[in-house]
Design a binder for these strands. Structure first.
Lengths: 138, 138
DNA sequence: CGGTATCCCTTTTGATACTG
DNA sequence: CAGTATCAAAAGGGATACCG
């Protein structure tokens, strides 16, 4: 790749008509990083303890190498995750939360915890909603 | 549309090779709804007060009608948002949080608040990261 | 092992036009 | 006003191959 993206490690798209990405308030961007599909899970797992790359991959499950790499790099760039690459063979890289990352992860965990606690209520609401819909359609 | 989607108000894609969507644990789904790009913003705004559809649209800014509709319907189905459609002409629809939605919104607001407070630290981390990268590339 | 580079399909999002 | 329908663009995400 010629020019440094410097924005996010998304490698593919070389062309983008307009870069909404960085032009939106930067605060929204961080929020999207920590609430991203894999960001949420990575932060919560790392709250438990440090993890190696493939250990994290196994724990989260069904995440591709590419997405995990991308997620970790984004979080590292935001200063939430610390990457510790040991110069050994075979390579060993440990990921852990920074102090900043721990704060973020705790917020995220709060949300995740609330979700699992209230899951039952949500499912009941969904059933009621679907029943109302089915009813109104005859 | 022939068959009822009943899953999510995503209208377009009639075909999907495999439905990962609903096969993942339902808890993850709720989490994705409340942390979704527009879900976060809708919940936070509604925490302030009830809003009408287009009022919400203007307040959030740069959200398409389609996405706002979709987001609101998803949150309504999950029992987080209450939709009050008055049978008047022109139509008037007010959206507000349910008790469950208020709890969710408070969690989300906590995260958003943290993000805006720590934004400075994140930006410093990014600069440091980019500098390290630029440096290591010569 | 821990990545990076590509290719290509899927899902999401937005613009636009239209309806009750 | 508050949506729905449709289409095209963009982003997300996975499979594979390869490198240090």
């Amino acid at each position: 790749m010629a020019v440094s993206p410097a924005v996010s490690p998304v490698a593919d798209a070389a062309t983008s008509k307009y870069d909404i990405g960085e032009s939106m308030c930067p605060y929204r961007l961080v929020l999207e990083h920590v609430t991203s599909r894999w960001g949420v899970l990575v932060l919560i797992e790392l709250l438990e303890r440090p993890y190696r790359f493939s250990e994290l991959r196994r724990t989260i499950g069904r995440v591709s190498e590419k997405m995990l790499t991308q997620t970790l790099q984004t979080l590292e760039r935001d200063g939430l995750v610390h990457r510790d690459a040991k110069p050994v063979i075979p390579p060993r890289v440990d990921y852990s939360l920074t102090d900043l990352g721990r704060e973020a992860a705790e917020q995220v965990r709060g949300l995740a915890l609330w979700t699992s606690e209230r899951m039952g209520d949500v499912e009941k609401a969904r059933e009621a909603y679907d029943a109302r819909k089915a009813d109104s359609r005859g």
